[in-house]
Design a protein around this nucleic acid. Structure first.
Length: 411
RNA sequence: GCCAGGGUGGGGUAGUUGGUUAUCCUAGGGGACUGUGGAUCCCCCGACCCGGGUUCGAGUCUCGGCCCUGGCCCCA
């Protein structure tokens, strides 16, 4: 038997309906904030992704050559494609541009809880706005979206400026090493690295920095910096908006292209892969040949959100099944059409068996049975049987539809 | 790429020191039953992840691979 490729999933209707419900909730909210949905190709030129993230990511991507010899890659994320699109068409757009996307991405990684080779991201990009309010807006929107999914989560907000201020005299390699130690909260490793590189003086300051939880503490360690005012304003805005967050100056991982504010969101009930969203302020447009545009955005790991939500029973729509006899087939089709036109989920019996067996099947799969046979056809009525109570009545079509519309689904 | 634990019908399971036709539940299909139900009864369908080795004989032991689950690494 053929298996699906490693790290991919099939979704049965129950799960698909839940995913669509959450997706559409996210879309709706993003729209009310003025963001509009965009879509980019599943594959792009390989260079688009290596420009952003370096050659190292080739190993982590699905890379292939097409019949024309072009080097392509399945998108591992969507920020770069969206910014590429912005550069391609954005000149004429009014700034700022508010876009969102819901897209599947592909990474060649080892699957584990909440991590798949094909996964979905819901993301937001705010391009061409350079202000603390813009940065606050994306965090506020992330908070709003994640709240709507019903999961428990914690937002950590940081700023690359803090660490930059302390590390500015170090070589780029040392900076990177130090950031990795800090991000992993490996303080012993950090101290021994620093002392073996003649940098012991930094250790105390760095540890104090990453354990700071207020902006005053942070600035007392880093001293004043050019962005101080702006950073204070950002956090003041979050406080005013009553966004629950933790100031986390230790966020340092990855992404050299982030320019200032960075944030990460962690969910409860997930294993090692518990980050459900991440983002920050960045500049990418100039990399793809556009004008330098300050931007910020984030992506939500949709699959992890769904895992974190756990099993939530799906509410089902009222469903009717149409049992009919061959001599009344024409009327049965008319009846079914009328119910469907009224927006009611309607299934025709396809088996041609006796009414008893048709009802046996319908009673397992629907809330109401419509019985349509010669008698109903002759009188232009339909027998509506409520399968929960067993009550049935013969009604003309409009009344029959009203009867079913008024009921609640039981399954 | 690394580590640990797993893999028996669609789902869930039993299978003793290696021994006949691999257990049970459930789901699915058909029938009893062509003007009224989910019950009941009967029938059917359907599995040892793949490949090599040991053995008279492998679901069971062994080696390799694949896949799953969790963790490490990475995480754009």
């Amino acid at each position: 038997m053929l298996q699906r490729p490693r790290g991919t999933r099939d979704f049965l209707p129950d799960e698909m309906e839940q995913r669509r419900e959450v997706e559409n909730t996210l879309r709706k909210i993003a729209r009310t904030w003025g963001y509009r949905e965009v879509c980019t190709p599943h594959f792009e030129e390989l260079e688009l992704f290596t420009l952003r993230s370096g050659q190292g990511i080739i190993e982590e991507m699905y890379v292939f050559e097409d019949k024309g010899g072009r080097k392509l890659a399945l998108r591992p994320e969507v920020t770069a494609p969206v910014l590429r699109m912005y550069v391609n068409v954005g000149k004429t757009l009014q700034k700022p541009v508010r876009w969102f996307y819901f897209a599947d991405c592909f990474r060649y990684e080892r699957p584990q809880k909440g991590r798949f080779r094909q996964f979905w991201q819901f993301g937001v990009e705010l391009i061409g706005a350079d202000s603390p309010l813009a940065e606050a807006e994306v965090i506020m929107l992330a908070h709003r979206l994640l709240s709507a999914t019903g999961i428990g989560f914690a937002i950590h907000v940081g700023h690359l400026g803090f660490m930059k201020a302390l590390l500015q005299d170090l070589s780029p390699e040392d900076q990177k090493k130090v950031r990795v130690f800090l991000d992993k909260k490996n303080l012993e490793g950090l101290l021994s690295y620093l002392s073996s590189h003649g940098l012991s003086g930094l250790g105390e300051k760095l540890i104090a920095l990453v354990s700071s939880r207020t902006i005053d503490e942070v600035f007392s360690i880093t001293g004043d910096m050019p962005e101080s005012g702006r950073i204070r304003e950002l956090f003041a805005l979050l406080d005013q908006a009553k966004i629950p967050y933790t100031l986390d100056p230790g966020i340092a991982r990855g992404l050299d292209y982030y320019t200032g504010m960075v944030f990460e969101v962690f969910a409860e009930n997930l294993g090692a892969e518990n980050q459900v969203a991440g983002g920050g302020a960045y500049r990418l447009a100039h990399l793809f040949g556009g004008e330098d545009s300050p931007s910020c955005g984030f992506a939500i790991g949709f699959d992890r959100v769904m895992v974190a939500r756990g099993e939530i029973p799906c509410r089902k729509e009222t469903k009717v099944g149409v049992a009919h006899t061959p001599d009344a087939r024409k009327w049965a089709i008319t009846v079914a059409k009328a119910f469907r036109d009224a927006g009611i989920l309607t299934e025709m019996d396809l088996s041609g068996k006796g009414l008893g067996q048709q009802l046996a099947h319908i009673s397992r799969t629907a809330d109401y049975a419509l019985i349509v046979a010669r008698r109903e056809e002759e009188n232009s009525v339909v027998t509506v049987k409520d399968l929960r109570t067993g009550n049935q009545k013969e009604l003309p079509l409009p009344l029959a539809i009203a009867e079913v519309s008024g009921g609640d689904a039981c399954r």
